[in-house]
Design a protein around this nucleic acid. Structure first.
Length: 366
DNA sequence: CCCTCGATCAC
DNA sequence: CCTCATATCGAGGG
């Protein structure tokens, strides 16, 4: 396999940057995009904030109430999420990115990998020109800045884009990759979160340099075959995972927060019904059917529990789905005699594209 | 091999 | 004080 050139893009503080565009007067001041849970007027968490807000310690995941305190001395703006807006902006930018790639992989609403090996003719200098061009085009057309990493594989490209933010461009050839990553803490490796980091700390491993010295047998012992092997390679800047177009998602879910904790189905079902129709709407929009239904319950201690059923045949029928969800809820409260539920959710999975009337019609019309 | 469920990650 | 959505893995049971 010849040397690849992979480009990773990360749209800077994306939701907050979208808000700055629609409300230009907000620029230069703290902007906080929030997920309001509806439990009380201010309950919920921060989804994203711009860099002015981050200076005050306001970042993704902290409670809105805490963000208010951190910003009480300054003029800051708190906005609810506007997902349709972010989806539209994202879709247009992904369209631009795609045109600058041989193959393209959307990772999330604000991240993508581009394989530009052919486009750049194997040259990292040309790859840099492409990156500059892409950044320029996104800025001109959408007024959005992004951070870009270029490397011989997805792993290092992502770590490179993360290295210089916002509006960064980091290029890491194979010969520099080891020097670059070995200084970094292990949690800069994608896939290494709180839990894996803790386990590594237990064996005195903090940096990637230290991780590279751990016997692979130990890694597999501690983390299993898959993650163990991944960590072994990642510590060496190696990753041969190809850039591949993502197929359709294999699950859709909706979760909501109850006004008050409860374990009585009659207090939970109204919300569960809303969530079910929302996720069913999504299923229909995507012209799909599901063969599995899951109930997600989050208790007062924030522990997460699931119950699921596999259906006899794929369905998109709301009655079938709701009946199954109801049964799962009954099963759950029965299995947890003392648990009070804080949040409830529904997931449709084992998704299949619908074969049917519409497809045949469009086929015949074509 | 299939199903169910919990754990983890990261947005 | 504590949102929401998706993918993936591993264990355990059948």
């Amino acid at each position: 396999m010849p040397q690849r050139i992979i480009l990773h893009t990360d749209l800077d503080y994306f939701y907050a940057q979208c808000e700055e565009i629609t409300h230009p007067e907000l620029r230069g001041r703290p902007v906080v995009v929030c997920v309001y849970s509806g439990r009380t007027s201010e309950s919920g968490v921060v989804s994203t904030s711009n860099y002015e807000a981050r200076k005050y310690g306001v970042k993704a995941g902290i409670p809105i109430v805490r963000a208010r305190k951190l910003l009480e001395s300054v003029e800051a703006t708190f906005l609810p999420m506007n997902r349709p807006l972010y989806d539209q902006v994202s879709n247009r930018i992904m369209g631009i990115l795609k045109t600058h790639s041989d193959s393209f992989e959307k990772l999330s609403i604000d991240e993508a990998y581009l394989d530009i090996s052919d486009l750049a003719e194997g040259s990292f200098d040309k790859a840099k020109d492409i990156a500059v061009q892409v950044k320029e085009e996104i800025l001109q057309k959408e007024r959005i800045t992004c951070s870009v990493g270029i490397a011989p594989n997805k792993l290092v490209a992502k770590m490179a884009s993360d290295y210089n933010k916002p509006n960064g461009l980091t290029i890491m050839q194979q010969r520099d990759a080891i020097k670059f990553i070995e200084e970094l803490p292990v949690n800069r490796i994608p896939g290494v979160g709180k839990k894996v980091e803790e386990k590594l700390t237990d064996i005195q491993v903090h940096t990637i340099r230290e991780l590279a010295r751990v016997d692979p047998v130990v890694l597999i012992e501690k983390f299993g075959k898959s993650l163990g092997n991944y960590l072994f390679q990642a510590a060496r800047g190696e990753d041969n995972d190809p850039v591949k177009e993502r197929e359709q998602p294999t699950q859709f879910s909706r979760i909501g927060t109850l006004k008050q904790n409860s374990r009585k189905p009659e207090e939970i079902l109204p919300l569960l019904n809303e969530l079910a129709s929302s996720v069913l709407q999504k299923l229909n929009d995507e012209k799909m059917e599901c063969k599995s239904v899951s109930l997600i319950a989050i208790l007062t201690d924030l522990s997460i529990h699931t119950k699921s059923v596999t259906l006899d045949s794929p369905t998109r029928d709301s009655k079938t789905i709701m009946e199954n969800a109801k049964t799962l809820l009954d099963r759950f409260v029965e299995s947890m005699p003392n648990a009070a539920i804080r949040r409830i959710g529904i997931r449709l999975s084992d998704l299949h594209k619908r074969a049917g009337q519409t497809d045949i019609v469009s086929f015949l019309q074509a």
